[in-house]
């Protein structure tokens, strides 16, 4: 997997116990031929989530698996806590 760090629009649910946000669905631009077109992906399976602090930025990295088109793919999403921002981190 390679770092892509592309911004995404995300819908998240928050855990009962510690309130950790879990991605539910996200939209990303430029999936098809039109760079402005948005593709919606439902997060199928969150295999693991880790808290990281690379370069001092507290973040949560989610290792996910979803059907994109008709292919099942592994990818990582990242929520950057101090900036309240979601990105498609690795693909």
């Amino acid at each position: 997997m390679k770092i892509v760090a592309k911004p995404i629009k995300t819908l998240a649910v928050f855990q009962y116990d510690d309130g950790t946000p879990m991605p539910y669905k996200f939209k990303i631009k430029g999936g098809g031929s039109d760079p402005e077109e948005e593709t919606t992906v439902t997060v199928g399976n969150i295999l693991r989530c880790d808290r990281t602090r690379i370069a001092g930025k507290e973040s949560i990295v989610y290792h996910c698996q979803s059907f994109i088109g008709d292919m099942e793919k592994r990818y990582e999403l990242k929520y950057i806590i101090p900036e309240c921002r979601w990105v498609l981190y690795k693909m």
């Binding site: 770092i3 892509v4 760090a5 592309k6 690379i54 370069a55 001092g56 930025k57």
Partner: peptide
């Protein structure tokens, strides 16, 4: 190295 680490995280 701090700038480098942050840039790598941003996909540089």
């Amino acid at each position: 190295s701090w700038t480098a680490a942050a840039l790598l995280e941003d996909g540089y």
